[in-house]
Simulated scan of single mutants.
Amino acid sequence: MSKHPGARAFLLAISITSVVCVQADDPDMVNKSNNPLNPEAGMNLLDYYTPKYYGSNIHTNDLLVRGTLPIAPNGFIGVPQLLRATAPISIRPDPGGGYSTGEGDLNLIDFFLLKTEGVQLGIGPQITAPYADKDELGTGKWQAGLAAIAIDSSPRGLLGALVQYQNSFAGDSDRSHVESATVQPFVIHNLERGWYLRSTATWAFDLKNDTHYIPLGLGAGKVWKSRDNILNAFIEPQWTVEHKGDGLPQFTLFVGFNATFGQ
């Protein structure tokens, strides 16, 4: 059994779904489970284990607990929304030469779904709250910015990208200013019997320190139907193909489990 928590969660999810679920042969069902703009309630467990960094012998782990909640349009806004909250549980090196484990900074995004047919479009504000248990687990800064996403869905799969920008505006005055951007391409290719191939690695740009890294991922996943819910387990190794700066991820193992409710 692997020693890091994400792999254990992935294997547990596989064990449970293989017992209680039935086959998913509908490409639309696979797309719903993988589409970040799917306007239905969901929960994700996403684990990033990074054993190799450039210029360093450290390792890290981030288990992201993410929930999405649809908000029906009302008279004031007039468009549907999708609220997404992400709370990380991280393992990071501490100043004493060991490792700290605890909660990281909380991120909230409110997507306004501007287009829900054809190529789906979503844009909205985001905020990151400095809720980390220890300094090494977060930035110590309040951050705000924008997120925009476009997704094209077809029987073949999904194609799109999520772009995020954040800038710190308050927080611990002894901590460094934060300005960052990320680009996450989505490439999902559907196979038969609920299987699919995926590439969803996030490109990260530290605009304050002028560093960046660009990984590429290649993985696979499996979707099941369980009663009224869609369940999805996957694994995606990610290799950095271009970077600027030290202390950046060289290789990351990404595993996850998604649940879409009320289908």
Rank of each mutant, 00 (worst) to 15 (best):
P51H: 09
T50F: 12
P125R: 03
R175K: 15
L231P: 04
L218M: 11
I149H: 02
T260F: 08
R66S: 13
G256N: 07
K32M: 14
T86I: 15
I71W: 00
G122K: 03
K134R: 07
P27V: 04
V163K: 03
D172G: 11
K3A: 14
L146H: 05
D172K: 14
T68V: 10
M1K: 06
T68P: 01
R156I: 10
V79S: 07
I214T: 14
L45W: 14
Y213T: 05
V30L: 01
A201N: 05
L207G: 07
L253R: 03
P51L: 06
I14Q: 13
E117P: 08
Y99M: 09
A147N: 07
S168T: 03
D110S: 15
R193F: 08
A201R: 01
A147D: 08
E192T: 14
L253N: 09
T211L: 00
M29I: 05
A259R: 09
L12P: 02
V19N: 03
T211A: 00
Q143W: 03
P237S: 06
A24I: 00
G42Y: 10
Y48S: 13
I89C: 05
Q164E: 13
N57D: 15
R156G: 05
H189W: 15
G256R: 04
R66E: 14
S2Q: 06
Q120C: 07
R193G: 11
L12D: 12
